[in-house]
Design a binder for these strands. Structure first.
Length: 109
DNA sequence: TGATTGACCAACT
DNA sequence: CAGTTGGCCAATC
């Protein structure tokens, strides 16, 4: 049984270290299909799976914008989580994007 | 069972 | 340079 696409997404997202963020495109590219970034977001939508904690708040779009923050139960929940990990969020966008960026293609390889 | 949508990205016009 | 379309996999209508 080969893991489905979104199962791979879960595996990668769960490996994102605290205080770091990654992008949908980076994950999708790591999985081999850079154009399947929509699936990554879709997988995050199901990140509420029982027994599985997915740090979806560490996954942003390529611009570092908190896309999908509204799916965290509150418009500021995602922001609070990131700030709690030491990431500054301004106007739904993180600062030092390049500094906090965690690229699975480089880190995991 | 077929069509549409979805927390996106990249290419084309 | 800005707007539009295509594409990917899986789930819902």
């Amino acid at each position: 049984m080969e893991p489905s696409f979104f199962e791979k997404v879960y595996a990668v997202v769960k490996q994102v270290p605290q205080g770091r963020i990654t992008t949908y495109g980076a994950i999708a590219k790591y999985l081999g299909t850079a154009r399947s970034a929509r699936m990554v977001g879709w997988a995050m939508n199901h990140s509420h799976a029982p027994g599985e904690f997915i740090p979806a708040h560490r996954v942003l779009n390529r611009a570092g914008v908190l896309t999908g923050k509204h799916h965290f139960g509150g418009p500021n929940t995602m922001k609070q989580l990131l700030e709690n990990e030491g990431i500054t969020v301004i106007n739904d966008q993180i600062t030092n994007f390049n500094k906090h960026f965690w690229d699975p293609n480089k880190e995991l390889a």
